[in-house]
């Protein structure tokens, strides 16, 4: 069996603050196979974006990181110099961000921004690099690409800018694409188009896609696997169909019932929300971080480490009393 594209285990990130160390990632883990899509879901502040930044080697300077395993394509970089991992950036892995309107340099032409990495890494000539950029722009659905290379970002619409970001990220033919809420800043009608473009290119290029989203609808639509993150840890993961059909962690269940379903959710009735708040992560948390909000919480929930139940169909849940009444293989 070949090694997974991305294999992260026991990832810790600590950010020093005035009030003490913020233990933002507390042993997070991820696995992604080539050509597959892993959706990382969770509420704001759970560490999704920080995980992406850690993967890209773009953590804030004062952040401290450690990992049990930090591997891309079978090579483990845990414990190696950060420089070795940073060298993968832009070649083996690329990233697109939430707000395409802020993510392009307003003072540089689209052509330069798309080709500069190619010219740097692959030592292509200007003409060669521009040919690649034109092909890529055409691929993501920008009309008349040749003439648009000389234009500036403000001459493109929001949806077009995200297409530019996608083209710019994929022009170097990376193996892994990290997309951090790539459609959140866009109109709903544009969102589907952008996801469509990403999915098509993923097939063509055999990309592994790590999609960060808080939109479970998006996850259901395009994920192969889903990882649910809570307070800096992945608490449940598994193939999308199984996880959505039989969510095992009380938190995952809470997320699921909070989605309005046309026909089933009666208008006027409040959606069930998960009560309580995410615990503060300064100074760290032991045991289950969800136990204060959990209706099922009991004595064992403060134990550390928590028991982990693996499913035969892949994935796991980290909970002392997971709901396993319905059979999830």
């Amino acid at each position: 069996m070949t090694a997974p594209l991305l294999d992260i285990d026991d990832l810790h990130v600590t950010i020093p603050t005035d009030r003490g160390d913020l233990h933002a990632l507390r042993g997070a883990g991820l696995r992604l196979e080539s050509g597959k899509t892993l959706c990382l879901v969770g509420e704001s502040g759970c560490g999704k974006s920080l995980t992406a930044m850690s993967l890209m080697g773009l953590l804030p300077r004062k952040a401290r990181q450690s990992a049990g395993r930090f591997a891309l394509m079978g090579t483990d970089y845990a414990g190696k110099a950060p420089k070795a991992w940073a060298n993968l950036r832009g070649r083996d892995m690329a990233m697109i961000f939430q707000d395409p309107n802020q993510s392009l340099n307003p003072t540089m032409t689209v052509g330069v921004q798309m080709t500069e990495a190619l010219r740097h890494f692959e030592k292509l000539s200007k003409a060669q690099a521009e040919d690649r950029a034109i092909a890529m722009l055409d691929r993501v659905g920008i009309a008349d690409p040749r003439s648009r290379l000389g234009q500036y970002p403000h001459q493109f619409s929001g949806g077009q800018r995200q297409r530019l970001m996608i083209a710019s990220a994929l022009i170097g033919r990376p193996k892994l694409l990290i997309a951090d809420e790539p459609t959140t800043a866009l109109d709903v009608t544009i969102q589907a188009q952008i996801l469509q473009v990403i999915a098509e290119l993923q097939d063509e290029l055999g990309l592994g896609l790590l999609l960060i989203t808080h939109d479970l609808g998006v996850a259901a639509a395009i994920a192969d696997d889903v990882a649910v993150m809570y307070a800096g840890r992945v608490i449940e993961t598994g193939p999308v169909a199984q996880l959505f059909a039989v969510p095992a962690h009380p938190y995952t269940q809470g997320l699921m019932v909070a989605i309005p379903v046309p026909g089933r959710t009666r208008p006027g009735t409040p959606l069930p929300a998960i009560s309580g708040r995410v615990p503060g992560l300064i100074g760290g948390v032991t045991g289950c971080a969800f136990r204060d909000r959990c209706a099922l919480a009991g004595d064992g929930c403060a134990s550390d480490p928590l028991p982990r139940h693996a499913f035969a169909s892949g994935g796991f849940v980290e909970c002392t009393r997971p709901s396993l009444s319905e059979t999830r293989p």
Partner: peptide, 9 residues
């Protein structure tokens, strides 16, 4: 956009 530039490597 500076983060984007860094992300490009």
């Amino acid at each position: 956009y500076i983060r984007s530039a860094q992300a490009k490597g």
